[in-house]
């Protein structure tokens, strides 16, 4: 996790994008794994969970960055936890008011965003040290990375588990579209229940690690080739 202070303005994009790919909370940092497994049986619920996490993360990161100079170092963790709990309560109440069906599907997993390590992790390692705008960007980026991760797991599970893909309007709970990709009798329903969650997450993690390693390998080879060319040029 990066702890150094970021000062340059040109770094804005870097701060925003690092949460999505290079330090993706789900596949790289392994923070907040419970909702990844628990809320990904359908695409709709995973999308809703991702949105809730983005909302909480952006608000808490901004608030904590705002008060970072006022909070004494010794009691910062309890202060952060109280702020996070307040924001989560507000988000939960808003969701029960405007997205009742979604909130009911997510149930207790909505409340336990409070103890999701992504939120406290970003507060402690980024928002407590950086400016308000940067913290806002970091919250948005990490939240988007979280959303992409849960959506990826949910898509895999729903397509293999039911043979189709549906999406409910988060505001009304009415189904917007449903596509059947292959007949239901060929679907493996194990993937919609708990073992499927673990297995899909495990396989996707392995794939992510393999892709990252291959990418690094290529980068290194490129650098080596460049160094060779430079050396040859120097010798001439």
């Amino acid at each position: 996790m990066e702890t150094k202070q970021v000062k340059k303005k040109s770094n804005n994009w870097k701060i925003f994008s690092s949460g999505i790919i290079t330090s993706n909370p789900i596949f790289v940092l392994f923070l907040g794994m419970c909702p990844v497994l628990a809320t990904t049986s359908t695409f709709s619920s995973a999308f809703g969970m991702g949105l809730a996490v983005i909302a909480v993360l952006v608000v808490t990161n901004t608030l904590i960055s705002l008060i970072r100079k006022l909070v004494p170092n010794e009691i910062r963790i309890p202060v952060y936890i109280v702020i996070i709990a307040t924001v989560v309560t507000i988000v939960e109440m808003l969701m029960y008011a405007f997205m009742f069906d979604l909130a009911q599907t997510l149930g207790v997993y909505l409340s336990i965003i409070v103890v999701n390590c992504v939120i406290l992790g970003r507060a402690e390692s980024f928002a407590s040290k950086n400016t308000v705008f940067h913290s806002f960007l970091d919250g948005l980026g990490t939240g988007l990375g979280f959303l992409l991760g849960v959506v990826l797991v949910a898509l895999t599970r729903e397509i293999i588990g039911t043979g189709g893909l549906g999406f409910n309007n988060p505001l009304t709970g009415i189904e917007l579209f449903h596509v059947q990709l292959f007949p239901q009798q060929f679907a493996i329903s194990l993937f919609t229940v708990s073992p499927g969650a673990f297995i899909v997450y495990g396989l996707l993690t392995a794939a992510f690690v393999a892709i990252n390693a291959a990418y690094k390998d290529r980068q290194e080879k490129k650098a080596k080739a460049l160094a060779k060319v430079a050396q040859a040029g120097g010798n001439q």
Binding site: S194, F198, I199, G202, A207, V209, A210, A213
Partner: peptide, 19 residues
């Protein structure tokens, strides 16, 4: 296999336990 080392195989094993 190398990519499965660590968390990946742990999650898959947990899946088998859940089964």
């Amino acid at each position: 296999p190398k990519p499965f080392k660590g968390n990946a195989i742990a999650l898959i094993t947990a899946g088998l336990m859940a089964m």
